[in-house]
Nucleic acid binder design. Structure first.
Lengths: 139, 139
DNA sequence: GTTAAATTATTAAGTCTTTAGTAATTTTCT
DNA sequence: AGAAAATTACTAAAGACTTAATAATTTAAC
């Protein structure tokens, strides 16, 4: 029974774990795999196990057993990093810019977080992308 | 003794009150003034009073008594909406885009949250602003 | 097969956030 | 002045988030 997760967001501790899982790639990882990525201070094994269980219940990851791996569960993200980024940006745009992405970008320029020159560079990239990896194999 | 508030962020309930105070303008407002802005369900008077006290302790607002207003305290934002927006955007950019504002804007285009056409419009606004209100009276 | 190790499930404690009641104080009304 | 109303201060309780210990279960080692 996969939980609907429409507008859910990750807490700080959950986010850290999701980042490790995303870094791991397609095959995901076990509690130990996640634990191995923490810098000091490394949390307790059971703490990490708890969060992975919570993330599963919330629908952010799926868990699965694997051949010859005993009862060890492997956790795989059920949402991509970009999907989550998108969700967060929608949230931020809604909360601070009345839902207008344009307002957000204008704010960036006004506050000089990005220069018109950089904007132009980005626009150039759009019209002639350098190496669009992944999407749409030709032929 | 005004508290340092460098990287502090507002909780959801605190944020709502700050929004009301920002909407009120320069002179700020009392507990009742804030309370009057809430939609249903309106929280208890003391709940709002508590949050305003917390916001004062955290340094997000200052409180002051006024002439002929008895002991009623008036609360005024100690940080502007744009300053707070800026802080949040720095936070978001750091957390989700490795601190690169450019990455964030590029992401917006990639995810089609904003179109190249809109970007061009924004760029046009920058080079010839329509009515820069507020800053710098001429002459 | 029994013991040790590893893993997951359950439970709980500590902190932060949210909410509001009660107490203390001050102002207003009669 | 005394009662009522308003305001702030203090206290507490419920919920969410974080952390981890203990219990139960399964796997591995001898």
């Amino acid at each position: 029974m996969i939980k609907a997760k429409e507008n859910q967001t990750l807490t700080k501790a959950e986010m850290e774990i999701m980042n490790y899982l995303w870094d791991m790639g397609e095959e995901g990882g076990s509690v130990r795999d996640v634990l191995a990525r923490y810098p000091e201070p490394v949390p307790a094994y059971t703490t990490t196990a708890t969060f992975l269980k919570i993330l599963t219940e919330k629908g952010f990851v799926t868990s699965e057993k694997r051949e010859n791996e005993g009862k060890t569960l492997f956790y795989v993200p059920a949402i991509s990093r970009d999907e989550y980024r998108s969700r967060i940006m929608d949230e931020v745009t809604h909360n601070y810019f009345g839902g207008s992405f344009r307002s957000l970008v204008s704010f960036f320029i006004k506050e000089e977080k990005i220069s018109p020159e950089e904007m132009n560079e980005i626009m150039k990239m759009v019209s002639s992308p350098p190496a669009p990896k992944g999407g749409g194999h030709p032929g």
